[in-house]
Design a protein around this nucleic acid. Structure first.
Lengths: 160, 160
DNA sequence: GTTGAAACACCCTCAAT
DNA sequence: ATTGAGGGTGTTTCAAC
């Protein structure tokens, strides 16, 4: 659980924003960018890690260069709303390797899944796995024509 | 432009998968994890960078701990399909700091935007900015109740 | 908060196999 | 592909301000 009482100032937001853009910045470059001494910057970074505000760091892979060239947003409506059914559906979807996002949502639909596959045949294979053993009322895929922004790091200094 | 002729083997996929999970792995740990010598692993890593397969690295920030606790998937239908209109709409959306994903999609809707805000009032502020000066036929927000998977790194070894 | 210095770990290269 | 070793760079800690 995260300690919500952690105090964050604009230096911290600058650190987080800079490392969202490039987590391989050296301590020297990061300190210069946020306007702190290397030492002070390093201490803040430790704090951001230990409080859980920084959850980890990850490389960004060019999936389409690997042939994973189709992104689909799958909207699902179901007839089942018991806790047991939801838990088993969650387990089912989590095991599907094509899944990047999986949200339970409100409104007209129950679930939204963001999926990456090898073209349409890969999507069909995903679809077949998805509906196996699960009674879904409606499944609709919205196919990406163009990713204008994909998982952009937020400029936290501008968010408020 | 990416060189699509780059040859990738299962060692490369293991490297990419491991660094998607944690890009701060030391060369020693990474080499051990994929089953290569540190030296060989380092050379592959250079190649993955120089061919553009690794686009960069980023920290993952706990946005809800910063008060950015509402995720909304916004579906948009428009009446305009000229190149000029699309370009200016793209510029407009790219300037909105709340946007994480922005896709042009096929089917019943034209655009899908993934947005993070400070609660419902933050979403309303986003919505007002979004529709200012742009004629959108339909705008519907699907509100996240629960993020079961959020931007999961794919296990590339399992994708085919 | 700052600078500066020292200890340490890691990265990168190279040579040899 | 591998190991091993050296030099350079960056990180981390500490002392003093």
């Amino acid at each position: 659980m995260i300690d919500k009482s952690v105090k964050i100032d604009s230096f911290d937001l600058k650190i987080l924003t800079a490392l969202q853009r490039d987590s391989n910045l050296s301590q020297r470059d990061l300190a210069e960018k946020v306007g702190l001494s290397q030492n002070a910057c390093w201490r803040r970074l430790q704090r951001l890690h230990s409080t859980g505000l920084i959850r980890g760091s990850h490389i960004d892979v060019d999936l389409s260069a690997l042939g994973l060239d189709l992104t689909v947003f799958v909207m699902i409506r179901t007839r089942h709303h018991s806790k047991e059914w939801i838990d088993s559906f969650r387990d089912h979807v989590e095991r599907l390797p094509e899944v990047i996002d999986f949200y339970r949502i409100g409104g007209e639909w129950d679930y939204l899944i963001k999926v990456v596959t090898r073209g349409m045949s890969g999507y069909d294979a995903f679809y077949q796995k998805l509906i196996t053993n699960f009674d879904l009322a409606t499944v609709t895929g919205f196919f990406s024509m163009e990713a204008m922004i994909d998982n952009r790091g937020l400029d936290l200094s501008r968010m408020r």
